[in-house]
Amino acid sequence: MKEIIRIVVSLTVSCIIAAFVMGTVFAITDKAKKHNEHLNVQETMLGLLGYNKANPAPPDLKLFTMYRYIIEDDKTKNLGYMIPVSREGREGYELLVINLKGEFVECLSLDISPEKASEESERKSSLRAVVKPPRTFTYSDSTIIARLGGKRLAYLLPGEFPGFKTFIEVMLALDPSFKIMGLEIMEHEEDPGLGGEIEQAYFKNQFKDKSFEKVKELKVVKEPLPEEYLRYLEAGTTKEGLISRKEVEEIKSKYQDRDIYALTGATISSRSVTVGVKNIIRKFAYRVNILDSVITGQKIPVAF
């Protein structure tokens, strides 16, 4: 009995020490890690817009983030968009509340600067000042709007959907007509070599240049990926993929309206990405159309 107690105690103590060490290191490195992740996301977003080290983003490219909240009380449920606005040259945020029928309810100004808006706690406290109980608000999602030369360049949509194992986190770039500009897989836990292949160029690049009309009915086909299409998809990632510009255009137009070729041995992962992307785009297009009509109807000076 004495022996058992000694074993239990020493095991517990060693676990506690280990936990303490790990916890301390985590606390020290957490900030730097978050910062890196933020930089990483920033880089991914610019990459989706077609900018990289060799082709840096122009200085007048601006990214605005819009946050969507669900605002509800006992009876009604409304959508609250935290939209970046610029009134009299000053940039700030306003909360635009729209009901589920797509009608304007109210527009409240928020006391928050654009720099602070990326912190969730800051957003919460500024929202709490205008959304009084019994009304409550819950965070839903965010959208990044890229603007270049006085025009909307693209929408960047972070999103997640269930994959084969757990959730797959993605970042989608759409142009103003909702054509897909690019898809990036941010995080996933699919099986390496099977579902994990969704992050490879030859799968994710298949989504590129699909029009909104095509996306609405996008399916997964279980056919082998044609050789020339594979070379086109992997162009830029491998040396062998080099093909002429004319060929690129030819292959692009040929496959633009095709369905998604499933990954061998990972039909479910392929299908869930396709369906997930489809849903994100469909919902977003519906919402943003309503939002835009309300914004023009109410003459809100949005920044984007």
């Binding site: 676990c15 060490v21 490195t29 900030k31 890196n36």
Partner: peptide, 29 residues
């Protein structure tokens, strides 16, 4: 304690792996 040396080894390795993983992620992305 000699009876729990293997768990202690595993714990030690796991701790160091976690520490190296976190430090790398934070300072050498």
């Amino acid at each position: 304690h000699p009876r729990i040396r293997i768990p202690t080894y595993t714990l030690t390795i796991a701790t160091w792996v976690t520490v190296i993983d976190l430090v790398l992620a934070a300072y050498m992305p």
